[in-house]
Design a protein around this nucleic acid. Structure first.
Lengths: 214, 214, 214, 214
DNA sequence: TATGAATGAGAATTCATTCAT
DNA sequence: GATGAATGAATTCTCATTCAT
């Protein structure tokens, strides 16, 4: 989990290096378990330099939050989903959902270290939670609602479920898959991941109940 | 999140007080964000007293892990699930799953502070992960596999899904519901929770795909 | 170095046990490196019990000093030296000195743990130094002066040396032998000790200069 | 005992100050009786600064040991003894030994605080003992053996004594003189020291036995 | 008397932050 | 701007001593 890349944000080289190092180590040891000295060493700068770019250690965390929101807002929300919607035209719903979920998974995967840091700290700080809620959860949910609405119109999915419950269920399953792979890599070999994704999507679409029996 | 109750473990009054305080504050601020001074104050003992019961601060965490595993092993695994299996006889599968999930949710809810502490730290420590995997995940999965097998035999559920994928999906949805309620209580009022549970179970059982269309 | 025996002092069983344990551990780890808890455990009493017999930890040290002085004063000073003086009558000076030194060595050896503790702490505390000086060094030196005077009278030893310088030289050599054996037991096997004592006495008596050459 | 001077070792100013303060206070109160706070105050630095230079308090002690060995190895062993050997050519053995012993005494005196600290702690720690044995005792003994061999060849000293026994006897007497002066300065006025040294050397060379009588 | 749990003052150590160079 | 030595407040942990039982 070391390949954090913040180059698309317009940061000075040092600031970027510091942020990337901080994300990487925060992700490994947690915010409070990480020292500014470690960050400096990994970033290849002097400890004092950190405090030229970030007034306090806490500011590094805030900065990660801000950048995470920026990255997600720009990438996730807008761009590729619209495209997907177009691509979805005339396609099988399974094919579409599969693509959507895999797409989101790869995005989340690429941002995983930042997300892990921010989500863990969100646990302890109301402000972070609110920022995430307002800037990520709500827009993402709105987007999904829109997409789901289209699918309902086309008769592809049930119309008796609120889109936000469906959304949460999908998010929960994606998160679950990612956590499994991250926390227990040895128990979840890569070759199994694809099958798991397929089956998880299958469950979400079809449910686990035996058809025709009921 | 203050209603931790460890009275069923046979601990001395002080040890119990210290553990309860530690769980409560660790849960709020994280292990590294909590000082032994805070724990002592909340427990109403001298700071030195903590170290009569726990050699190091880290030992408090280990003790929480051990007790969590003991509590879950004893309660969850054995007792109530067997009962549920009997109760399930001749009942509607939906009714049964609903009961099962609600039962597990209330258990997890009651252990939530401990779980939160341990899961957060599991993120950083391999040993904790392994302990959880071996003592909770594997046994719980085995149990579910057993239960699921019975349901397959009765023709209540699909026989083309590996039980562990189903298990993970259910766990993910339960976890998601609990996290929502805990992290964003203001956005998820209690009266909605019941409906959400119902619909989540509905999705797991039926899927989101429109029947008859396919 | 565990066979401290204070039974000849009239102490209650517990007090004796505590003192013996304290001497043994102080001797191994030093006064400041020893905890009252360790002493209690080794003595087989509760930690609180120590403070019934000794107001403070420091009092244990003082007590050791007092007992050491008592033991040395009674045993060394009076008793056996007088006897030796009698035995010395008409004997070879070498035989006598050999017996004297071996006798003193075995005494010092038996009191070694106490001595080590007290001498080490004497390094840090003026009062201890003064107590040792007044109660041990001065009387012992007086005694030796007396003995040496007799030997001078009999023409057995040189009459141009102050007895206290001779005394110190003998003490230094005895102390040296004991320290070697204690600190580097592996480098000073027991079978060598006897030869070393013989030769050390030989040096003190004869010197290292080649006779007849000068 | 405050005139420790470590300037010949190439240490940063602060490191030197800290070491000198530590030696001085360790020497007065012992390692365990000294707090890092005291050392910092005496050195005129913040307590935290100590730990920039020494990972732990124990490391200060190790550092003292290392520097002591370095100082003794460089100074004692090589340089001045070789010179002495040359100076000794054609000189009276008494004059030579006198010079040698006085020379060693002044060296030991100048290193006395370090030596005291290290020797006291050697009492408790095997590793320190071994380091001293290997790096100081063995080389010094070898050196003396060499020197003594030369004196034997020239017929200046007895050839029936093992050099290491002679060596230990001399060391014991030097150590004794220094300890007397240090522990009981009021009982051993400076003007006596010279006479004592002379007579101690006299004893070592000539022994205490009356000549011609035997 | 004896106990040992509890205490709290004090010790070593850490680390975010500052600031002179 | 960048550095990294220095700081000292805060933190974990120790231990002699007390005291209720």
């Amino acid at each position: 989990m070391d390949e954090i890349d913040l180059s698309e944000l317009n940061l000075s080289e040092k600031e970027q290096k510091i942020l990337e190092s901080a994300i990487s180590i925060f992700s490994d040891k947690g915010y409070n378990g990480t020292t500014t000295n470690e960050i400096a060493k990994k970033a290849g700068v002097a400890e004092g330099t950190i405090f030229r770019y970030f007034k306090t250690k806490k500011d590094i965390l805030s900065s990660i939050l801000v950048h995470l929101i920026a990255l997600i807002s720009s990438k996730i929300a807008l761009h590729s989903v619209e495209e997907l919607a177009k691509e979805a035209e005339g396609r099988d719903i399974r094919w579409f959902l599969n693509k959507l979920i895999r797409d989101r998974m790869s995005l989340v995967n690429s941002l995983f270290p930042m997300l892990r840091v921010v989500l863990t700290e969100a646990t302890y700080h109301e402000e972070i939670r609110e920022a995430l809620y307002k800037n990520i959860i709500v827009p993402a949910n709105n987007l999904f609602t829109h997409l789901y609405g289209l699918m309902v119109e086309k008769g592809q999915v049930r119309d008796d479920l609120p889109s936000d419950v469906v959304f949460k269920s999908i998010v929960a399953n994606i998160a679950s898959l990612i956590f499994q792979k991250t926390l227990f890599p040895e128990h979840f070999p890569d070759e199994d991941t694809d099958k798991q994704i397929d089956m998880t999507i299958n469950i979400i679409l079809t449910g686990i109940e035996k058809k025709g029996v009921k």
